[in-house]
């Protein structure tokens, strides 16, 4: 009995230890974002003496976060819309096996999923530069969509597999037109799938670095994370400002993640199990 209790306690300690590993760097950001540079240089662990918003104002201004937020929203929004449209249409066809070549398409998508960015970024960059389409957040949004489409299609397909095959026929028999079939029958059933894919793809696009930094070099078109990176060039010794900037980037993402965590966790777990 005692050993069992001890083992349970040990389990809790291990879980709490790894929670601390994940959280301590983020807590350091929170604590130090309110401190002056002198306070941080004395000790990064001390609590702030006063709560001043000065660091946040400086970070917001010099990181060009206002513009960054708009660019990031436009970029991720483009990716989410393109991926949701393409992957739900393709997932619907593949789940219903509505084309005879569906196994070939599945093999193609599996292969496309494993193509690394480094295998296509160099010619793609030259082509986009030749078309004068660099420094355009919508173009980057579409490129990131193309990368995410194969995995999103697989995920959407598994959600469409849950739609009973005769449901569609029954609805059509009842005189429902195609538009109503989609909006009244299919969409409500796969809505959780659309949210899951939307959240995961949105996070991917929001956080992406290699393609965004290569294709968006003009400060006016940079995303939030790229603006923060640029700011590091000037403010790398102003730790309070850097931490305030980091906090501005962390809080909205964690808020969205916590609000939608069920969909993120389900998507990750099911995606991996299904292959």
């Amino acid at each position: 009995m005692i050993t069992r209790f001890m083992r349970g306690a040990l389990g809790h300690i291990v879980l709490a230890f790894f929670a601390a590993v994940a959280l301590i760097p983020l807590l350091l950001v929170l604590v130090n974002s309110f401190k002056t540079n002198d306070e941080i240089l004395k000790s990064p662990f001390s609590l702030p003496g006063t709560f001043s918003s000065e660091n946040f104002v400086t970070a917001w201004t010099y990181g060009q976060f206002g513009r960054g937020f708009i660019n990031s929203i436009l970029l991720s929004g483009t990716t989410i819309v393109v991926v949701l449209v393409c992957s739900s249409l393709a997932g619907y066809v593949l789940a219903g096996k509505k084309v005879r070549t569906w196994p070939i398409i599945m093999v193609y998508l599996t292969m496309a999923m494993t193509v690394p960015i480094q295998l296509f970024i160099f010619p793609l960059y030259s082509a986009v530069a030749w078309l004068n389409l660099t420094d355009n957040v919508f173009v980057v949004g579409v490129i990131l969509a193309a990368i995410n489409i194969p995995f999103a299609t697989f995920l959407m397909r598994t959600f469409f597999l849950n739609v009973p095959a005769d449901l569609e026929e029954a609805a059509l028999m009842d005189g429902v037109d195609t538009f109503q079939l989609v909006t009244r029958v299919l969409l409500p059933i796969v809505r959780p799938g659309l949210i899951t894919v939307g959240v995961i793809v949105g996070l991917n696009a929001w956080n992406e670095f290699l393609i965004s930094s290569t294709f968006l070099q003009n400060p006016a078109h940079q995303t939030l994370t790229l603006g923060f990176l640029t700011m590091n060039g000037t403010f790398s010794t102003q730790l309070g400002t850097m931490m305030a900037g980091a906090l501005i980037l962390i809080v909205p993402i964690l808020a969205v993640f916590i609000a939608l965590q069920r969909y993120v966790v389900d998507g990750m777990a099911s995606g991996a199990v299904k292959g």
Binding site: L26, N32, P44, N232, M243, A246, L249
Partner: peptide, 30 residues
Amino acid sequence: QVIYLMPYVLAPVVNALIWMSIIYNPNGGV
């Protein structure tokens, strides 16, 4: 699960700059 995933959902740029400034930094970091 939510706590463990927090670093995973943050951008590489943010994670890298956090570690560079407040942990790996010999002047003011951990």
